[in-house]
Computed example of a mutant assay.
Amino acid sequence: MKFSVFTASTPEWTPEEAAATLAAQGWDGIEWRITDQEPAAEPGFWAGNRSTWALTGLEKVLARIAAVTSAAGLEYSGIGGYVRCDNHDDVERILAATAHLGAGQVRIVVLPLGASAMGGEPTGRDYRDLFAETREHFAWVAERSSFHGVKALVELHHQTVTSSPSSALRLLEGLDPNHVGVIHDLGNLVVEGGEESLAGLQLLGDYLAHVHVKNAAWRQLPGTGAESAWKHEWSTLRGGIADVPRYFGALAAVGYDGWVTVEDFSTELPLAERTADNLAYLRSLVQPC
């Protein structure tokens, strides 16, 4: 098993700082965030993130991405892409970039739910139609992934058509698992789609291609009775609802020995302390008994 960090969770560092710091801490790899983002006065996870590479002009910075990664002695656990499956031109570009870098695999985003604002304004479209459309797009994505010799990954993510292992399997079933696969994301399953870990991992079978680890907890907002509401908040790996040690037991039970990428969006600890502590914690979970 190898450990990496998704740079969505390292907003304060430049690419050079992220690679050098993670390598010095002993991480095996890095998962670069690639997307066009909004500027921000202060660096944040989703806007103004300093260790994000822009999708616009990506081809011009591939040599720099490769140089920064190799200079630190890190491997790619994959590419953290944000290109939607219905944007075929940019899917083609990011698949080609993944192949050029030798990164092996890249996340391709599925369609959001009709009631979700993840893709901008909610569309109001029926889930069945969205799912069928996404499946059509991924049949094309699988063919293009095969052409480029890489694997396109579907992430289990709330407010999308693939929030659970069952839905992701249904989306990809019949497509070549050498060129499409699933990112099992423990923290996202706390928010939506939460199927029991071992069962979900078993269900995915050959489509289990990658693992993201973060944690979350539900918090009650002020108010009582009809005014009371709950929202999820990202937490430390130890502090959320998901049982991380039990999860690693499930991964071992299915024989998973691939990449585990951490995307910790908690802020209790300073960034460098947070990443170092996460690596120590995860390594403690895979020590021989």
Rank of each mutant, 00 (worst) to 15 (best):
K151N: 01
R84V: 03
H148R: 14
R125H: 10
S145H: 03
S51K: 02
H158R: 14
R170W: 05
L169T: 08
A142R: 12
A132E: 13
Y76E: 05
Y127D: 09
P177G: 13
Y127F: 14
L95A: 06
I94V: 15
G104N: 13
A66W: 00
G181F: 05
E75N: 07
P165D: 11
L74S: 05
S163A: 15
I65S: 00
I79W: 04
V68H: 04
R170L: 04
A115C: 07
D185R: 08
E59P: 04
A63C: 00
G181K: 11
L55Y: 09
E59V: 08
A71E: 14
L95N: 07
H184A: 06
R93K: 15
A63M: 01
Q159Y: 08
L62D: 09
T52I: 01
D129S: 14
V68R: 02
E75C: 06
G78A: 11
K60P: 00
L130N: 12
E143P: 07
D86N: 15
F131V: 07
T160F: 06
H179I: 00
L113M: 14
R170C: 00
N178G: 15
I108Q: 06
W53T: 02
P112L: 09
E136K: 15
S77R: 10
R135Q: 13
D126H: 12
G174Y: 11
L62P: 04
R107Y: 01
L62C: 11
W140S: 10
G119F: 05
V161K: 10
A66S: 13
G73K: 12
L101A: 09
V68L: 04
R50I: 02
P177Q: 15
G119S: 12
A72W: 03
V61G: 01
N87A: 11
A71Y: 01
R93Y: 01
I79F: 02
G181E: 08
Y82V: 10
Y82N: 14
L175C: 06
H157V: 06
E143F: 03
A152K: 06
A99V: 03
S70F: 00
A96W: 01
H100Y: 10
T52V: 09
R64A: 03
A132T: 13
L113K: 15
A99T: 10
V106P: 03
L74I: 03
S167M: 07
F131L: 02
S70M: 01
T160K: 09
D176L: 07
V161P: 00
D129G: 13
T56H: 08
E143C: 00
S77P: 05
K60E: 13
A67R: 13
Y76S: 09
Y82S: 12
E75S: 14
V61I: 11
S146Q: 15
C85D: 12
D129W: 08
G57S: 08
A71D: 15
V91W: 07
S146R: 15
A96S: 13
G174P: 02
V110A: 13
I65H: 01
F131P: 02
E136G: 15
G149P: 03
K151P: 00
K60I: 00
A63H: 11
L156D: 09
S167C: 02
A97K: 07
D176H: 12
